[in-house]
């Protein structure tokens, strides 16, 4: 049984689903952050797999862009989480509701 691109797609879908469930079910901001990373990388996996399948470079190029954006996001996001944690001694998103209308 050879590993065809379809399997990569299924793996990416499973990873994405795990990430999405993490976002929706967990309350800890740090864990949610990790789930976002999981979803981003699930998408990256589809890009790479599709690029390989089609024999083009665009897929891999897109992945590089996504990684850059993700890195920048991690910097900002982690900084916010650390700042909030210092101030509130919690990372639960349900308690961070000051901006609710």
């Amino acid at each position: 049984m050879s590993v065809t691109p379809g399997w990569y797609m299924i793996l990416a879908a499973v990873l994405f689903a795990i990430g999405a469930s993490g976002i929706l079910l967990r309350r800890n901001a740090l864990v949610m952050f990790m789930s976002i990373e999981l979803m981003l990388n699930a998408v990256n996996l589809t890009f790479v797999a599709a690029g390989r399948q089609l024999g083009t470079l665009e897929g891999q190029v897109s992945v590089v862009f996504v990684m850059v954006v993700a890195a920048a996001e991690v910097v900002v996001g982690l900084a916010i989480i650390v700042a909030v944690f210092r101030k509130r001694a919690t990372a639960s998103v349900d308690e961070l509701s000051e901006l609710r209308g």
Binding site: A20, I23, L24, L25, V93, D94, S97, R100
Partner: peptide, 12 residues
């Protein structure tokens, strides 16, 4: 509900 997460379910 006011919980972003429940809206997220809607989006998903």
């Amino acid at each position: 509900s006011g919980f972003v997460r429940s809206y997220g379910v809607g989006v998903l």
